[in-house]
Design a protein around this nucleic acid. Structure first.
Length: 575
DNA sequence: GCAAGGTC
């Protein structure tokens, strides 16, 4: 008997079909992600009975069963005496390697001798899967296993220790909620708090602009403006000088063509960001809908960080599916795919594309499917758009005025993917030295404005930039910080609560690295070293936990002041 | 009652 284990049911099905077609008989099992996990020992169970600092002194963690139903199923198969070989076919990434190791260790308890091999495929295609089957490797890449285990255990130890310290200190003062700290949730909150502080500290500055209404010899009317003038006296002086001038002339007029590239193949992050902008619903909800569409067969796997197509991708078939669901016909031939590829490849999943036509209805599901289908067509069959940018420099008296406009030269892919099609406004076509009639001169007072609060879309972009979370987890964090009472959603934007603001403030005073992306950066740096084989899991964990043990001690030494301040912010916020 | 990472 031969057993193949994949990370999820859909991959298990694909493997079974592909190898059976070529005469290989095997039991193919699909997991649901991790089967095992790390946890703290029993004696840490009661939060009040053990100093959280002790968690940061641990160097070993207990292995617990995470998915007991799956665990039992694995045991049932592995106990069979006739298993000759176990094939690990989890995703070809470090987290997949760790999931594979979980299966490996379970298997070895029941079968000490059978061969254990690893299939590595980077796409769920006939070629890749069959090649991975024929060229399966002996055993696992242990550097990848330890790399992921380090991340898991570091996050557990630091998260548990800091969360317990903060929670217990506020519980002593009557708070009943949870004050959590985590390497991803806190930096996410920090972006929101930093923005709020920027808004609060913003001092609007007045400035003045001279606005002139002009007319060309052909009777076209448009407006041109001076630069910002920060001093009122000076603005007034210039205004007096030009307010009665009747003619202006064009110093320079030029047109340039700007190319707007068609969209790249769809990754999770862009799906979430774009649909948050388009539909205004939360990123976690969008991911849930995408997951639902995937499990019902309408779209491919929705958690991917790949934006390039494999050479064997069937564009023709996918195009028919997209066109069918959208009830569209393309003018150009779908036999000539010309996708614009990006540079990202997670080594485990293709970009997101439609796999079955969705019958249009009023649901959000349709809106998500429609976006995926249009994005595919725009990427593979769309043309880059071209915009003519117009820029003019005009002089009235001694004052320079500027104006600009734009107009589509080619609308290109926006025809099929209209979501972010810009509203363009053109100005008349001018020529140098042309004389213009002045219709009106005005002195306008305006004020500099503070930045807006962040949308979830902008928040995800910052997280991606700083490597906070992964494609599969980033959407969770806005929900987590709202659930903890650190932030609220107000008019499609995220606003920190008083508690959120004070928590960041207190942590930042201990050390900026407790709130910045620095924790994540450090974890990645050490993960890379483990992955390269230049550092052991033990050494990496020891070094990093020592650093966070020091930071913990500093926070613990002033926890009474911190807790008082947090309690006060909770009462003041009334949230 | 902890984290973040998988998946459903």
């Amino acid at each position: 008997m031969l057993i193949i284990v994949a990370e999820k049911a859909s991959v298990a099905r694909a493997i079974k079909e592909i190898i059976e077609k070529r005469g290989v008989k095997a039991v193919v099992l699909g997991l649901r992600g991790h089967v095992l996990d790390s946890d703290l020992e029993e004696k840490f169970r009661d939060w009040w009975k053990v100093d959280p600092a002790k968690i940061l002194e641990l160097r070993e963690f207990k292995t617990v069963i995470r998915d007991s139903k799956m665990y039992r199923e694995l045991v049932r198969y592995f106990s069979n005496n006739y298993v000759e070989e176990l094939v690990i076919a989890t995703d070809n990434d470090p987290e997949g390697e760790l999931i594979g190791w979980e299966v490996y260790t379970i298997f070895r308890r029941y079968n000490g001798f059978a061969r254990i091999t690893r299939m590595r495929f980077n796409a769920i295609t006939q070629e890749d899967i069959w090649k991975a089957w024929q060229e399966r490797e002996e055993g696992l890449n242990m550097n990848w296993v330890w790399k992921s285990a380090f991340r898991r255990d570091f996050d557990l130890a630091t998260g548990a220790a800091f969360t317990r310290l903060l929670t217990l200190s506020t519980r002593k003062r009557g708070y009943r909620g949870l004050i959590s700290w985590g390497s991803c949730q806190i930096p996410t909150l920090n972006y929101i708090v930093e923005r709020e502080e920027e808004i609060m500290n913003f001092k609007p500055k007045p400035y003045w602009i001279i606005s002139v209404k002009l007319e060309t010899p052909f009777g076209e009317v448009f407006e041109a403006r001076s630069e910002k003038i920060m001093d009122y006296g000076k603005a007034r002086e210039i205004f007096e000088e030009v307010k009665n001038v009747k003619e202006a002339y064009v110093v320079d007029y030029r047109e340039t063509v700007e190319v707007v590239r068609r969209p790249k193949p769809l990754r999770t992050d862009e799906l979430l960001r774009d649909l948050n902008k388009i539909l205004g619903i939360s990123t976690s909800k969008i991911l849930r809908i995408a997951e639902e569409l995937y499990s019902r067969g309408y779209i491919s796997y929705p958690r991917t960080d790949t934006n390039q197509w494999s050479t064997s991708f069937n564009f023709h078939e996918t195009a028919l599916i997209a066109l069918n669901g959208l009830k569209l016909s393309l003018k150009i031939s779908i036999d000539r795919p010309k996708p614009l590829n990006g540079s990202k490849n997670d080594g485990a999943h293709p970009p997101i594309y439609p796999t079955k036509p969705y019958i249009k209805d009023d649901s959000v599901e349709w809106s998500v499917w429609e976006y995926v289908a249009r994005r595919f067509l725009a990427n593979v069959y769309g043309n880059d758009a071209e915009i003519i940018k117009q820029r003019a420099l005009i002089r009235i008296g001694r004052l320079d005025l500027k104006t600009s406009g734009s107009i589509f030269k080619k609308t290109g892919f926006f025809e099929i993917f209209p979501y972010f099609k810009p509203e363009l406004k053109s100005i008349p076509i001018l020529s140098s030295k042309q004389v213009l009639r002045v219709l009106d001169v005005r002195l306008l007072e305006e004020k500099t404005k503070p930045p807006d609060r962040l949308t979830e879309s902008e928040l995800l972009k910052l997280m991606e930039r700083d490597h906070i979370g992964t494609d599969a987890t980033r959407a969770d964090y806005p929900d987590i910080i709202v659930e903890r009472g650190y932030a609220k959603r107000v008019k499609k934007k995220v606003k920190p609560t008083k508690l959120g603001m004070f928590l960041i403030k207190c942590l930042r005073e201990v050390s900026p690295r407790l709130v910045s992306p620095e924790t994540r950066r450090m974890v990645e740096e050490y993960m890379e070293k483990i992955s390269a084989g230049s550092l052991s899991y033990e050494k990496a964990l020891d070094t990093c936990l020592q650093i966070y043990h020091k930071l913990y001690s500093e926070l613990a030494s002033r926890i009474d002041v911190v807790a008082d301040s947090l309690i006060k912010s909770i009462e003041e916020g009334g949230d």
